[in-house]
């Protein structure tokens, strides 16, 4: 069960920016990008700042209240992607009224998309031409 936990950003190589309330996260080590839906962005804000996952169950979003299963699935994804890591000794942070209101204003379901077509394992050049199934560093042959 993930929802009892407190999490933090997995490493200093995970960096993020927010655009009109939608987060884009970059893993500097792998070169993978992650784009969050509006509700996913708010949950990312909450979880990465130390709000316990358990506190988010039942919170109302534009798409309805979040269930423990929703939260669990989302947290599992973020752990799998290496964006969050559990912490055992950090103080729990409260969910702010501002964030609650922002969650209520969201319109999209919880979602995080991975953009890894240019991540390091398959990028050899520079100029976006690789044989993806072969992996790095197989250069795409001209056709």
């Amino acid at each position: 069960m993930q929802t009892s936990g407190i999490y933090t950003i997995a490493s200093k190589d995970i960096v993020f920016e927010s655009f009109d309330g939608e987060a884009v996260v970059l893993d500097l080590t792998s070169g993978k990008y992650f784009g969050f839906s509006d509700s996913g962005s708010r949950l990312w804000d909450a979880l990465s700042s130390g709000v316990p996952a358990a506190e988010l169950a039942g919170v109302v979003t534009g798409a309805g209240p979040l269930s423990a299963t929703d939260i669990d699935g989302f947290v599992s994804q973020l752990l799998e992607f290496g964006l969050l890591a559990p912490v055992s000794d950090a103080p729990a942070q409260p969910l702010s009224g501002t964030l609650l209101a922002q969650l209520a204003d969201t319109t999209e379901p919880l979602k995080v998309d991975i953009h890894d077509d240019l991540a390091d394992l398959i990028v050899v050049d520079p100029i976006h031409e690789v044989e993806e199934p072969l992996g790095w560093p197989a250069v795409k042959q001209a056709t």
Binding site: G31, Y33, L118, V123, I127, H128
Partner: peptide, 8 residues
């Protein structure tokens, strides 16, 4: 904009 610019 960013991924290919940074990867390249």
């Amino acid at each position: 904009l960013a991924p290919s610019g940074i990867a390249q």
